[in-house]
């Protein structure tokens, strides 16, 4: 049992780390009263997923997946290029999301003068 756990931690530490980061992100998203920090939590959560994809793509002893200059390179060990492409795309999507989220935050701050959820709740309840 412990051996297995140790095994996982030594060989798959990237995954374990990824889930830890994801958990932190999710916790921030849920528990933090500050809306900006919530958004940071979202970003952390997404970043953890990107790391996960990169970890998935890794092949032991593999190089970066760049087409070699040599037309006949022979046997090559390369990381899988597909997840990298995915992550690139996902990062773009994530940036767009963050931009929209920040825009909303600016608007909320302009309207209510606060970025804290508990204060916001009070302000809205008063209305």
């Amino acid at each position: 049992m412990i051996d297995a756990a140790v095994d996982v931690l030594t060989t798959r530490y990237a995954y374990a780390l990824m889930f830890v980061v994801m958990g932190i992100g999710m916790y921030m998203m849920i528990a933090n009263e500050n809306l900006v920090k919530k958004l940071i939590g979202v970003n952390l959560f997404q970043t953890a997923i990107f790391l996960f994809f990169v970890a998935v793509a890794y092949v032991e002893g593999g190089d970066a997946p760049i087409v070699p200059a040599d037309p006949n390179p022979g046997e090559l060990a390369m990381a899988s290029p597909l997840p990298h492409v995915i992550v690139l795309t996902a990062i773009v999507v994530g940036i767009a999301l963050t931009a929209v989220g920040l825009a909303l935050l600016v608007r909320i701050y302009a309207e209510y003068g606060t970025l804290r959820e508990d204060t916001l709740r009070e302000v809205r309840a008063d209305e």
């Binding site: 998203m29 979202v42 959560f45 989220g101 909303l104 909320i108 309207e111 209510y112 916001l120 809205r124």
Partner: peptide
Amino acid sequence: PESAVAALKYLILGTLGASMYL
């Protein structure tokens, strides 16, 4: 102003959903 708050709530949860999918 409510609409911005609603949108942000949707944004956070919607992103979470999409990330789960990812």
